[in-house]
Design a protein around this nucleic acid. Sequence first.
DNA 1: GTAAGGTTTGACATGGGTGTCAAGGTCAAG
DNA 2: CTTGACCTTGACACCCATGTCAAACCTTAC
Lengths: 116, 116
Amino acid sequence: MLINQLAHRTGVSTRALRHYDGLGLLSSRRLGNGYRDFAESAVEEVRRIRLLLDIGLGLQAVAQVLPCFDQDGALTACPTARERLRGQIRDLDSSIAELQRTRGLLAGALDDLVDI
Amino acid sequence: MLINQLAHRTGVSTRALRHYDGLGLLSSRRLGNGYRDFAESAVEEVRRIRLLLDIGLGLQAVAQVLPCFDQDGALTACPTARERLRGQIRDLDSSIAELQRTRGLLAGALDDLVDI
DNA sequence: GTAAGGTTTGACATGGGTGTCAAGGTCAAG
DNA sequence: CTTGACCTTGACACCCATGTCAAACCTTAC
């Protein structure tokens, strides 16, 4: 599929998709006219990239972790990547706890200790 | 107190403190030699600034909200600021929920649905 | 005097994913 | 042929709190 269609199906801008593709993160080939031709699997790949970006990885790290997903989206092999993501989850938990603590402090300052 | 001491007591770099002071966010005057002389209250002011930065405000927004804290650290007056911070808390809650959702997705990919 | 360590201002760098614009190729429809 | 919609690469802007470096002043200790 062409880049515009992939953008519509994923909600990601063509600019970002070209960037991901330039880093070799997407299954794509080139048509005779030079246009990118994305495989159907690229949709799922984009979802994974966004997931990994969301957890705080950079694109460089994404490039290392992405190949470790199997077709079902599970991370069975790649012990290194698994350990890295475990660490990322721990960081995520820390962030969540920190945000909750901060939220409590702020709500306290607002004298609204209950919900907003 | 001098800037280095404030930096030590707050854990914030002198660079950041000068930046805050340049924006008028800190109680300071100048000694005869031009050195900044921070009031004791600056310690608490720095804590508030960091809190507000942590919840996602920029320094410009901090400058608007900061004067609304009373001496006890409560935000009693300034309805505009209060409303802004309420909104910020809502955003914070959204962020927390999103992080938790993301964490769930990632843990699922790791086949570690329980705790890490 | 001079060395050391604090301080001042100013300017520039940084990150890093994405927006945006430029200049141009491709192709189907009228 | 022309128009318009799509695609290409490349370059630059941005955010914005903070790091970092330079040049210079103040003070104290030796």
